[in-house]
Design a protein around this nucleic acid. Sequence first.
DNA 1: GATGAAATGCCTACCAGTAGGTAGGTAAGT
DNA 2: ACTTACCTACCTACTGGTAGGCATTTCATC
Lengths: 189, 189
Amino acid sequence: MATTDTKGELLDCAQDLIQRVGVNAMSYNDLSVEVGIRKASIHYHFPKKDDLIEALLLRCGNDYSDRYREIASSQKTVLEKLEALADMFDNSLAQGKICLVGMLCVESTTLSDKLQNTLESTINNCIGVIESIFIQGVADQTLPQDMNTNEAAHAFHDTLLGAQIIARSLKSRDHFKIAATTYLNLLRG
Amino acid sequence: MATTDTKGELLDCAQDLIQRVGVNAMSYNDLSVEVGIRKASIHYHFPKKDDLIEALLLRCGNDYSDRYREIASSQKTVLEKLEALADMFDNSLAQGKICLVGMLCVESTTLSDKLQNTLESTINNCIGVIESIFIQGVADQTLPQDMNTNEAAHAFHDTLLGAQIIARSLKSRDHFKIAATTYLNLLRG
DNA sequence: GATGAAATGCCTACCAGTAGGTAGGTAAGT
DNA sequence: ACTTACCTACCTACTGGTAGGCATTTCATC
């Protein structure tokens, strides 16, 4: 998972910091301390902060797809797969981290136009991954036949994000688990 | 709604800015331009940025209660009241603004301990308001008798917050409306 | 295999701009 | 005389970003 090269370390640490404190509270100085190279040296790998975030978003799309394929290719039922997805969010939460995409969305008005567009693509990418589970659920009749899978995927993701944000401030992983379970129970009907 | 005194104007503008760009991207300089007094003069009313945010959170609790009383005392059904609540979030969204509490939660790790505690109280205050609608729903048998109203209120709020955040980045109010409707439909069973 | 040149990856030193915050003054109202 | 509500001027710390230097590695050419 963690890369050994500097560029990879920078991405790892930057993502970690952003997920914890946000883009605007994360500086090249913080990052330099974390990685162990000088602030100015970061500019060699990512000339502008925009370049860093751009790289982060593109990597996020890939990472997310990878981790999803593990879940999707498993022998789990559709609802178990949705639970596994919720567990990914719970895992971040346990480390005090908010979903990278969600974090950037909140601060999106302070991002460049280019980054806002990239962010939009990344969201749709992530939702596509979630939707494929819902599509599977409709196909195998676990979920209602008239379900709009795209809308359902969005709503599910919204709940996970919102619950993650509130749960962190309430310092209660239970809050997240309950919200996720409540939603999944509603899906069960 | 908007106060005419400087202190009130500062609170109004600060809230507006925070809901749009976040606490960390909002500066006393931005605020001074908006309100029309010098940056240093803001310190007269709110010596530290912490004082401003503290005041904002306390006011939020009251405002929220006020606006809720309007909804709660109306002749609407429980589900209509929940819709009205969703409309309040939709209204902020239309102005490019995220729920103040949600915004602060995302950036909460960069806040002082005192503010984090105040924030926690404010969240619980807000959820209490929402829960009272759910309690009413269980009492008049609109909602299932075995529903945990506290958990339900939390989950509903999580969805509204998450949907608001994602919808703003997707520049789609429809996204929010669909997510809210999807959730309310799940509640209808 | 030795050699010069270029590319790589970091460094120190610096810059202008802005952050939150302070000191001290002033004009008007009580 | 005191308070209120502002002002100008200034401070330190830190922001993202640049310029230029310096080893080390890579690599084509002799």
